[in-house]
Amino acid sequence: MKISDIFKNGIYKKNSIFIMLLGLCPTLAVTISLFNGIGMGISVLAILTMSNILISLLRKIIPAAIRIPAYIGIIAALVTIIEMLIHAYIPSLYVSLGIYLPLIVVNCIILERAESFASKNNVLHSAFDGMAVGLGFSFALILISFFRELLGTGTVLGFQVLPASTNMLVMILPPGAFLTLGILLGVINHYLNKKKEELENE
């Protein structure tokens, strides 16, 4: 397997949010500001890479019968460690991510990568796969939270860009998350379908 293929798959061909629609709960909940989106994306990226490395290292030791509890244990421990580190060193991010930080434990992307990739591939490839999928996830969160923050509060990373009169409050409320995600999914799928048709017509 080529490393470039791993990155292509993780970032756009099998993007966890836009293509596979995995891990939507934190995606919808934390994307009220770009700061949150970046913070959540990087946290998942770090946890996913580390869990992939650890699970790949232990893949020959962990018997198939106990693999799920072992994976969940490893992921939960990593998330707890990251949570404590963020609480100690970036308290503002800890406060704004709130409950969604510990909930990374049950983010299905991480368990999915452990089960379908890290448990079958070597450490190097697993590490790259964790990074690639994490980057794809971060990219999606950043895109969604950028539009929501811009349209909802007229700011980008807290800096005012649009006048307050153009704010659409609904964008930072829960319905705005569904609207943004839906429109982005529509645009992306339209583009992908067009590409597919072009390939078929040739």
Binding site: I62, P63, I66, G73, I74, I81, M84
Partner: peptide
């Protein structure tokens, strides 16, 4: 396998304690 699972969780608990 139970012992192995116990061993894995023990290591995880120790690392959390350390951090």
């Amino acid at each position: 396998t139970s012992l192995l699972l116990g061993f894995i969780t023990a290591i995880l608990a120790v690392s959390i304690f350390f951090v």
